[in-house]
């Protein structure tokens, strides 16, 4: 748009129009541009873009949003601003993204809660009320026990659960959260039954595991790791398809025969009906951003795994996640 105005300025100078007329023409063009998304095509973005983050500043999702926003600002030459709209486990933020005008100036970070909040009846809108743009990260969970436990391996854990159905206590974050869903996913695949002990967030479960008040936990590998290094906890496996680079000795559940398909993922999305051309531009930019040094550095700090999927891939991922969650939550 800037270029466009500049061009007109050059043109008008030649045709001898007054500055006032030029100003009016430019203002008119801007007004028209703001009037409808159809007109904005070809020129997006021409003003700051808001990235709604439904989670508090300083959290993993917020840090990812900020790293992405920085990269996108550089890429497009307009500021991408992260705005935190917390509440209702992300729902307040999601609602705002879904109900924004589909002009590409209000986007946001989508997480697994988009699907779970809808299935649990906390949020009316489902993932279909969003335009999926691109996946930015996918993280899996770790299974851990206290270092004093007689459970040495992941097989031991399953064996013990099999022998005493519903007796092995598994602390796994909030009910319906990704750690809990991971555990349910494992129950389904391995035919075992745990005693699920819900906690208000993963760290609280680790605290009780350190004190030996619960038998095991499904938790963030990054949160477990320092206690493994300190010798208080033992990590048995990580969910997901492959081992983590930080933990080369810890097997993945997939290689042990349980390809768990629940994860903590973070993606960029907008309201439904976003112009195709905006989505395409963002896809390219996000693909570049998730490989940028600044982004990778941030991800390493928060212990998150960068993972890019384009709009189509993300849509397929969302569909699959909804299927899995529907099955688990039933």
């Amino acid at each position: 748009m800037k270029d466009e105005i500049k061009m007109r300025t050059d043109d008008t100078r030649r045709s001898g129009l007054t500055r006032r007329q030029v100003f009016l023409a430019a203002a008119g063009a801007l007004t028209l541009a703001a009037a409808g998304p159809a007109f904005a095509q070809g020129s997006w973005p021409e003003k700051p873009v808001e990235i709604i983050c439904g989670f508090a500043p300083g959290g993993g999702t917020d840090l990812l949003a900020r790293a992405l926003a920085d990269a996108l600002s550089d890429e497009f030459g307009v500021p991408f601003q992260v705005i935190n709209r917390t509440g209702g486990g992300g729902v307040v933020g999601f609602e705002e993204i879904a109900s924004a005008a589909p002009d590409g100036y209000k986007l946001g970070i989508l997480t697994a809660q988009v699907i779970t909040a809808n299935l649990r009846g906390v949020m009316q809108k489902s993932y279909r009320d969003f335009t999926p743009i691109a996946m930015a990260s996918i993280d899996y969970a770790g299974f851990a026990v206290n270092a004093n436990s007689d459970i040495q391996t992941f097989e031991d854990l399953l064996e013990k659960a099999r022998q005493n159905p519903g007796a092995l206590s598994l602390g796994n974050g909030s009910e319906g959260g990704s750690f809990h869903m991971t555990a349910r996913n494992l129950e389904e695949q391995a035919g075992v039954k745990f005693k699920h002990v819900p906690f208000d967030g993963g760290p609280a479960a680790i605290l009780q595991l350190l004190g030996g008040h619960i038998d095991a936990t499904v938790n963030g590998p990054t949160e477990i790791l320092p206690h493994v290094q300190g010798g208080q906890l033992r990590m048995l496996a990580v969910s997901g398809p492959k081992r983590l680079p930080d933990l080369p000795d810890v097997p993945s559940t997939a290689e042990l025969g349980f390809p768990l398909d629940v994860s903590t993922w973070r993606a960029v999305g907008g309201p439904a009906g976003l112009p195709e051309e905006v989505v395409e531009k963002l896809e390219g930019a996000i693909e570049k951003a998730v490989q940028s040094e600044r982004f990778l550095e941030t991800m390493e700090k928060i212990g998150s795994n960068p993972e890019y999927l384009d709009s189509e891939g993300l849509l397929a991922y969302l569909q699959r996640q909804e299927e899995i969650y529907t099955k688990i939550l039933d």
């Binding site: 206690h227 300190g230 700090k301």
Partner: peptide, 10 residues
């Protein structure tokens, strides 16, 4: 975390 410091037993 942002500064790359791991809080924990170590």
């Amino acid at each position: 975390m942002i500064h790359g410091i791991q809080a924990g037993p170590l």
